[in-house]
């Protein structure tokens, strides 16, 4: 399955993802700039903040418990489509998902 990351400057990068891996993990392992994931997906930071593309928000679903509090600490603007990418696990319905990256994570 695939994920397309769209950087703040509009640059698009498509990468292969494994089912069950998080969007954060996929970005880090594919050397995608713009996702840090400092805590490794332990819900200890907000450095994997992303914006789910409008066409995918329904398939992705809502935030996990505590996620909005972490997003309050995100470096870039929080929008209704904001998620922590460590909390989005890849599954068949998300194949082809488009993820927009914020200006900054720190």
């Amino acid at each position: 399955m695939k994920i397309t990351f769209v950087a703040a400057d509009g640059t698009r990068t498509q990468v292969q993802a494994r089912e069950g891996d998080s969007v954060m993990h996929t970005a880090v392992q594919n050397d995608v700039d713009g996702i840090i994931g400092e805590c490794g997906g332990s819900m200890m930071c907000a450095t994997c903040h992303c914006y789910v593309d409008d066409g995918w928000t329904e398939a992705v679903g809502g935030q996990e418990e505590g996620e909005s509090d972490l997003l309050d600490c995100a470096a870039s603007e929080v929008r209704p489509t904001s998620r922590l990418s460590c909390q989005i696990r890849m599954r068949a319905e998300l194949d082809g998902i488009v993820i927009h990256l914020p200006e900054s994570q720190l």
Partner: peptide
């Protein structure tokens, strides 16, 4: 299991 309170605490 209360990441929201933890994040608030850090600030």
């Amino acid at each position: 299991n209360a990441p929201g309170i933890h994040m608030a605490a850090r600030r």
